[in-house]
Amino acid sequence: MGVRGVRMKIQGLTHRYGARSPLTFDQIDLEAQRGEFLAIIGRSGCGKSTLLHVIAGLLRPTSGTVHLDSELVEKPSPRWVMMFQAPHLFPWMRVTQNVGVGLRFAGWPQKRIDERVNEVLELVDLRDFANSNVQDLSGGQQQRVALARSLVMEPELLLLDEPFSALDAFTRADLQRDVRSIAKRLGISLIIVTHDIDEAVIMADRALIMVGAPGTIYKEELVINLPDPRQREDAAVQYMRKQLMTAFYDAAGSAPSAVGRGNGPEAEEAAPVRDKAGAAPTKRRIVPAA
């Protein structure tokens, strides 16, 4: 497939919102292969959105690093783009202008922007709405515009924060399938945060569970090596879903400290690059036969 994706390496990532706030998440280590799709599931408030913001360079970590290939993420870039839970379109712009806005920021000539925008609108199946006012679109169509706005940048990494949770089941299923196939076709790396276990199984190559306050990545992860396209009702998908559900409840049952990580305020003192031999629990991979 494509070669656009990127290798991600997160080391000892720790975050707190303010000097007196508790840790949002603590000492997260995570790696992803080029073009791999990760899903992160976890309860509300465990710090998933914050983690994505840090990976996108929209928030600075308190300590720890995010590397995409060899580059340290310190600020936002059109090469690693985040798509938010709400479309957040610019209401004074038409669909095409919304989609092309990032290319305009990058200083592309209008003619090339138009060409590229048309391609991407085709990709997300919105060509008939190119000149619509975005406020006249349905929620699903708006989210497609937001997706097109991200895809048009041809990012190396696409970060999705519960992008479909506000949509009806049918639109959601369509978009889950479409986003996966589009991003796979383009070879983009992808991380999706979701509450929806089905969504994780349908969209990701590997599912991670985030637990606790401060949040940590649970020791068990699920490799989802299913063929495409994946349907919710497929037996294999249902099986994976059950596996993930079980792991999720196991994770919820074990407090973060039970996983063996410091989660008190003293953990903040930890050096940015964590002593691997120290706190890291051994990872367990569930790799069911497909």
Partner: peptide, 15 residues
């Protein structure tokens, strides 16, 4: 969120 989206897509302050 509009600022966030714009920053996310690489906008400078002037932009």
């Amino acid at each position: 969120a509009w600022y966030k989206v714009a920053r996310n897509l690489g906008a400078s302050r002037i932009q």
